[in-house]
């Protein structure tokens, strides 16, 4: 193939039909606080692991709502369960427990 010096960029398009409502409802049943998140990003800003690994609970929740479960799990892989995010959450979400619940519901995917 001719070397053009560039390639087709990967599309960032999301298909909302991929959103797994059943799993998300199951998660919300176990952890109703998941619906409380207002995506302020305080958890991500305070995350120690986030300095070394792409770790973000805010992005993980957004990815789940966009039907990107694999991506959501990737955002949580670096979590050390230190609990700093729980201390800064303005909505008082038990973020550490929420992370464990997300892994319980989606972890096998």
């Amino acid at each position: 193939m001719t070397d053009f010096g560039y390639s087709i960029n990967t599309s960032s398009r999301m298909n909302l039909d991929d959103f797994d409502k059943e799993s998300f409802d199951k998660l919300a049943e176990m952890e109703p606080d998941v619906r409380k998140c207002m995506a302020c990003g305080s958890c991500t800003a305070s995350c120690t692991a986030g300095k070394f690994h792409e770790t973000s609970l805010r992005s993980a929740i957004l990815a789940l709502q966009n039907g990107q479960e694999g991506k959501a799990i990737d955002f949580l892989k670096g979590c050390m369960l230190c609990g700093k995010c729980t201390m800064v959450c303005p909505r008082g979400i038990n973020t550490r427990h929420l992370i464990l619940s997300i892994l319980k519901v989606y972890g096998t995917k």
Binding site: G5, S7, N9
Partner: peptide
Amino acid sequence: QANRGYSLA
């Protein structure tokens, strides 16, 4: 040139 992949996408 480096940005053309975006145009092409």
